[in-house]
């Protein structure tokens, strides 16, 4: 994935780092992602987690394969309020089948061991 999709740019996402080739996404705290005063919107966090999950899944495939991914569902757990600081997120692929992938993602601020939100996704793989 060379450029981030329009929605990722709307959220202000950037690739801050990679771990084993999997991108670590960063999201600055801004008015565009604000929910209740002082806290990040749950929808923006959900969108970020979804993007992290899909980008992790991209890393499972070679450049010449390029399957299309269609999200089937996402379940987001919110553990802590997202505060006025940078948020990071990374996806982890649990299983890639022929048609379905199971992917998880976590988002954290200061301490990765204390995630602020986590998501599980089922994603449909459409091979060209």
């Amino acid at each position: 994935m060379k450029t981030l999709p329009p929605y990722a740019q709307t959220l202000g996402l950037s690739i801050a780092d990679t771990e084993g080739g999997v991108p670590v996404l960063a999201m600055a705290f801004s008015d565009d992602v604000l929910g209740r005063p002082g806290f990040i919107h749950g929808g923006a966090l959900g969108g970020m987690l979804e993007m992290a999950a899909i980008m992790a899944l991209h890393c499972e495939f070679a450049e010449d394969e390029k399957p299309r991914f269609k999200p089937i569902n996402i379940t987001v757990d919110f553990m802590r309020g997202g505060r006025d600081k940078e948020t990071r997120a990374i996806g982890a692929v649990t299983r890639v089948g022929t048609r379905i992938a199971n992917v998880e993602a976590i988002a954290w601020q200061d301490d990765r061991e204390k995630p602020i939100a986590a998501a599980r996704m089922n994603i449909l793989i459409e091979r060209g």
Binding site: Y7, T10, G46, G47, I74
Partner: peptide, 22 residues
């Protein structure tokens, strides 16, 4: 179009749907 998940199709990313339903 700024909320699209794929600029080629223009189909909305699913994140904005999460926000709407939230």
């Amino acid at each position: 179009s700024g909320l699209a998940g794929d600029p080629e199709t223009g189909i909305l990313a699913s994140g904005p749907i999460v926000t709407l339903m939230d």
